[in-house]
Each structure stands twice: as C-alpha cells, then as structure tokens.
C-alpha cells in the first residue's frame, strides 16, 4: 500500500502544481480586452476535442517600423546584447544565434498605431480590401515588467501578454546592415476555449477561420463573434466570455 501512495504522491503534486498555478494566475488580471474574429481566430477541435483561439496581430514586419516600437533600449531591457555593430562581419551570425527572450508585449486594439498602418497601406495602394478583415491588434511596447506596463497602459484597448521576441538581422544586400526585434510567437500561442463557451462559439461561427491563419493574413469570413480575453498575473490568458 505504501508503494502505491509513494507513486501517486508525485503525480498528484504535479497536477496540484499546475492547478495552483492556474488559480494563482487568475487572482489578478493585468489586462482585459474584447477581441473580434479579426483578432481571435477560432480553431475548432476535431470531433469533441478542445477548441482553441489563436490571437492574431499586425506583425509590423518592416524593419524600420519594427525599430519604432521595439527600440534598441527596449531590446536591451529584455536582455539582448546589442553591443556588436550591425555592420561587423560576424553580426549576422551572432544576432542570428541569439535565443528568443520572453517579454510582456503591449498590443493596442484599433488605436492610433492601427490607423497609421491603415494610412500607410492606403498610400502604398497595397490594400485590396483585406484590411477590413485583418487584425487591428498592433504591438506598441514591450518590457520585462507587467505591472509597469499595466500602469502605463489602461485596460480595455490594450492587451498585455507574454510573447517570444527574437532578433533579426538584414545584410547590406537587403537594405541593411540592420538589427531589429520581432515577435516570434505569443506565450501560449493559443488559448483553450472552455467547453461551455466552445458550444456557444460553434453556434455563433459555423464557418470558422482557416486553421493556418497567420498574423496579418486576413480570414476568409467577416467577424461574427466577440471574445473577452483576460491575462492573469503570471501572463496566462483565459477566455472570460464569448458573445
């Protein structure tokens, strides 16, 4: 009997740790925002497997635009060593070898940053209607401290969530030399939809977004639902409501 108890204890402790982490995370929300299908792509599970929502965002992939919001100072605060000049011969290798770092990223929903992007797209004439369905969630700030960012940016229009930031390097032949930061993925990359809300979501959105939807790629269908997402003190998101 002792043998069984000794074997079961670590299993229960592991599950208990995970549950305690989840509960502790939800004792305080550092951000709460309502997204539409433009920003929260639904991935229905096969059969009765869990549904998941993936948060999509405007990637700000242009290096100069990336340096506007993810400045060298901010990258240094995240722990990146930028001491080597981008024009140094081994710069591409050194910056390309750096591991991504986890940081809190502030996304602004349908704010000034998104309107600036819309204006740029309109001027460039590159938008052929896809902008109506593209995510209006735009990264505007990043830092290592969630409380500091939460104090700076109010609730409602801002989603503050952990993400993986990586460095990218462009050589002279591609308009460089230039080092800049980019979001590789959110942490976690998708959010499990609670079973009760999943049924509601199925009723609201019988034609889900494409499962391989990437940031900046517009969905095939217009927005049909709104999702209230909260992010807890440990940076773990959860779905509060779907309507």
């Amino acid at each position: 009997m002792i043998r069984v108890v000794v074997n079961i204890i670590p299993v229960l402790m592991a599950v208990g740790w995970l549950v305690a982490t989840g509960v502790w995370n939800r004792t305080e929300a550092v951000a709460r925002v309502t997204l539409t299908a433009r920003e929260a792509a639904w991935r229905p599970g096969e059969g009765t497997a869990p549904s998941r929502l993936s948060i999509t965002w405007e990637p700000r992939a242009d290096p100069l635009d990336a340096r506007n919001w993810l400045t060298d100072d901010r990258l240094r605060r995240l722990g990146f060593d930028l001491s080597m000049p981008a024009s140094a011969p081994p710069a591409g290798r050194v910056y390309g070898r750096m591991l991504p770092r986890r940081a809190w990223v502030v996304f602004e929903l349908d704010g000034e940053a998104w309107r600036a992007i819309e204006r740029r797209q309109a001027l460039a004439g590159g938008d052929e209607g896809g902008g109506r369905f593209a995510s209006r969630l735009v990264p505007i700030d990043a830092g290592p401290d969630a409380a500091e960012l939460a104090a700076k940016y109010g609730e409602g229009r801002h989603l503050i969530i952990p993400a993986w930031i990586e460095l990218q390097w462009r050589g002279p032949e591609a308009g460089g030399p230039l080092v800049y930061g980019a979001i590789r993925a959110l942490d976690p990359p998708s959010i499990t939809v609670p079973p009760g809300l999943a049924a509601h979501l199925r009723a609201l959105a019988p034609a889900p977004a494409a499962p391989d939807r990437r940031p900046g790629v517009p969905p095939a269908t217009p927005a049909r639902y709104e999702v209230e997402v909260a992010v807890g003190r440990l940076g773990i998101p959860w779905i509060v409501e779907i309507r």
Partner: peptide, 15 residues
C-alpha cells in the same frame, strides 16, 4: 493545456 499554463519546470521535475 486545459489551464493554458504551458509546462512549468516544477511539473516537469515532478513527472
């Protein structure tokens, strides 16, 4: 996965 908590290292060690 249910709790969206990733896989914390303490849970990995306990497993």
């Amino acid at each position: 996965e249910v709790l969206n908590v990733g896989l914390p290292m303490p849970a990995l060690w306990l497993g």
